[in-house]
Amino acid sequence: MYARTPEHASFADAIDAFCRAKTGTRAQRDALTQNGTEAHSPAIYAQMAELGWLGAGISPDHGGSGGGMTDVCLFAERTAYGLAPVGGYITTAVAAGPYAKFGTEAQKEKILGGIARGRVEAIAISEPGAGSDVAALTCRAVRVSGGFIINGQKTWCSNAHLADHILLVARTDPSGSRHEGLTMFCVPTGTPGMEIRGIPTLGGKEVNDVFFTDCFLPESAVVGTVDQAWKQLMAGLNSERLILAASMLGRGRRAFDDAVAYVKERKQFGRPVGSFQALKHRIADLATELDCCELLVYRVAAMADEAPERMLPREASMAKLKTTETAKRVAIEGMQMMGGYGYATEYDMESHLRATVISTVFGGTSEIQRDIIGKTFGL
């Protein structure tokens, strides 16, 4: 567990203790998530809000507890390790960034203050024809008297069904280059003309299609500057990648610890299976890789805290690539070491596998991360 300062160590220890008490058993987690079909528990989230944890990274001027990206990453990591059902946090933490950097004072008070009090926020970027190629998005926002009319479809919108608002990226001017003419909007869920439909997945209720049909948004819904959302979006995506990396660091460590505990207890041929060299060496390799991920994630978080205005595309993509791929490897190896029990829902390893495999896709696939990293070297 990373601890940059004594305060960070105390924060992490408090989260760990909370998770052991509230979400430490399968029975507790099933009761909070309708037997694992929900990724987010409003009850647990509200308790964390009361403790001030959801305000990590948000200025006290807007109801937060302060801190920086290191605090946000610690919260994401330790709640993931503790299997706390707070799936709404990632998109919420990512959405906070554009509002904090580009929002009006009224938007900051409403959105950032709401986050600190336990409200969930979501982001709508991807479309059926614009996933990895974000600049290809076609959802239109046409200016009319007093605001904009939105038409189009967004997809893979995590937590839209839980959110108070959706941070929408739409095309306001199609005449320029693909990276021009994009604008961010704050859309309250329930706005007439917006429909949210869940997409069934292996992870339960997590992602959604969002449809806009002649949906009117007032001028005050604009976040930042009209037609200038590309740079705003890139800053947000880099933060998203780092937060996702921290979350998968926690999940990967949990999968590792679960695997180690199993191979210490499981006996075959008269001895614990973990004592066989083949498994012992796997454990050694995975432990080394996870420590590398931890150093990378928190180095990038420290860089973000030292210079919040920096974009860090190379570093954020490296953290996301390395950590999600490592967490996936840990879960696959863990399932292999546990044999049939790794596939059974009696143990958590099968859920670790589902969570880590998809992490190499959302927030930009591993292939996209490699492409971004390559471009930063002028390739």
Rank of each mutant, 00 (worst) to 15 (best):
R329S: 14
G67M: 05
K264H: 14
G67T: 06
D61I: 00
G52I: 09
L83H: 11
R314N: 14
A221S: 06
Q47A: 10
V357C: 06
R314S: 12
R266T: 13
I123L: 04
A278D: 07
S65P: 02
A302G: 15
S132K: 11
R282Y: 11
G250Y: 02
G274Y: 10
M311Y: 09
P200Y: 06
G274I: 13
S359G: 11
D164N: 15
L83V: 11
Q336E: 11
V144F: 09
R20Q: 13
G147Q: 07
I44P: 01
T37E: 03
T345W: 05
R171I: 02
W53A: 06
V223Y: 00
N35E: 06
I196H: 11
T225Y: 07
F216Y: 10
L83R: 15
A9K: 15
R266C: 15
A229N: 03
R26I: 13
L244K: 12
Q28V: 12
R26L: 14
P272V: 14
A284V: 08
S366R: 10
D30A: 13
E180P: 04
Y262F: 15
T213Q: 14
I372W: 00
R119T: 10
G340V: 14
E180W: 03
F216R: 03
E315L: 09
A39P: 00
E38N: 07
A124H: 00
A141H: 01
Y45S: 05
P218Y: 08
T365Q: 09
G340Y: 15
R143T: 01
Y343V: 08
A307C: 13
I149K: 10
I372G: 06
I368R: 12
T376I: 13
D214Q: 15
F216Q: 03
Q232F: 00
F148A: 02
L233D: 00
L279C: 10
R271Y: 07
L233M: 12
Y89G: 03
G190W: 09
A124V: 01
V144N: 07
L162P: 00
H281A: 13
D16V: 09
T365V: 07
V134Y: 03
V273D: 09
K231N: 08
H352K: 12
K231M: 09
A287T: 02
P42G: 07
G57F: 01
E127S: 03
G236V: 06
P128K: 07
F377M: 14
S10M: 13
R178M: 13
D214P: 06
G236D: 00
P60Y: 00
D285Y: 07
A327G: 04
K267M: 14
N159E: 15
G63C: 08
I283G: 08
Q232V: 12
T360H: 01
F75R: 04
L137K: 02
E333P: 07
L296Q: 05
C73S: 10
D164A: 15
E219M: 03
V226L: 03
G146C: 05
K264P: 06
W53Y: 10
S132G: 12
L290F: 08
F377P: 08
E77I: 04
A130S: 12
M1T: 04
F377E: 15
A80Y: 02
M48P: 06
L51Y: 11
Q47L: 14
F216M: 06
R143C: 04
E325G: 11
V142H: 11
E121R: 02
